[in-house]
């Protein structure tokens, strides 16, 4: 479906319930979220590496809302062969062994079978951005805290471009992203969560992306207040 026809008109801000937040949002089941995230970056001129929807939920009504994992789409970066020209330091080899072990265990748990063998896909290098995306699934942010939490709190998009700016950020997630080779990270709030995009390329703010996000995720935010 085209984005416009698939998005219901202007729903009131909805906040999910911790544990299974998507259940309370008929417009944002996970299949729909996945399609929207894919549409957002597959059709973009820019080379986005991933997109994540951080879902707002309430633990109890006396506490601030929490942004937890809603869904994510990992596209990957174009130039994956860069690493092939890099030297394989002992640290790199140790880190790769750790990542492959974790992926092997996750594969085994998901599939319910023992995995192994030299041809197993997990024996392929686990890139920095794959790892960053994977560990993102374990993270959550209190409203006002961290890059997604700040975007949610301020109701304004946050767009950070450049290694230096990411490294100098007060937000741990921005510094972490920079450490895993990302050069651009963007957080755009919605009524019920935050859309985050990351790229290993330098991407500067465009109205086009903001508009696509607005259409796909049906936002009511001040696009000028960045």
């Amino acid at each position: 479906p085209t984005p416009r026809s698939s998005v219901s008109p202007a729903p009131a801000p909805v906040t999910g319930i911790a544990g299974d937040p998507l259940k309370s949002m008929p417009y944002f089941n996970q299949e729909s979220l996945q399609q929207r995230l894919q549409t957002l970056i597959d059709g973009a001129r820019e080379g986005w590496t991933y997109a994540i929807f951080w879902q707002s939920s309430v633990v109890d009504f006396a506490s601030p809302s929490v942004l937890g994992w809603g869904d994510g789409y990992y596209k990957g970066e174009e130039d994956k062969n860069k690493r092939k020209t890099a030297s394989f330091s002992p640290d790199f080899i140790t880190e790769q062994a750790h990542r492959k072990k974790v992926l092997r265990e996750l594969n085994s748990l998901i599939s319910g079978t023992q995995t192994g063998g030299e041809n197993d896909a997990v024996d392929e290098e686990v890139t920095d951005t794959e790892w960053f995306f994977l560990i993102s699934m374990t993270q959550s942010f209190v409203n006002g805290s961290g890059l997604p939490g700040l975007a949610m709190y301020s109701s304004s998009p946050i767009w950070v471009t450049g290694t230096e700016r990411l490294a100098a950020s007060h937000c741990e997630r921005a510094r972490q992203a920079q450490g895993f080779g990302l050069q651009t990270i963007v957080c755009i709030p919605s009524a019920n969560g935050v859309v985050e995009l990351g790229s290993t390329e330098l991407i500067f703010q465009t109205a086009d992306l903001m508009n696509k996000v607005k259409v796909l995720f049906n936002f009511n935010i001040d696009m000028g207040a960045t």
Partner: peptide
């Protein structure tokens, strides 16, 4: 994994499957 919230479990499954497809369906590092 069984204790993971459904959204994370679905995302993890999709990520692992797509990664496997990507690796097995493309010639490496052309």
């Amino acid at each position: 994994v069984a204790d993971l919230p459904i959204a994370r479990r679905n995302s993890l499954t999709r990520f692992l499957e797509k990664r496997k497809d990507r690796i097995t369906s493309t010639a490496p590092y052309q």
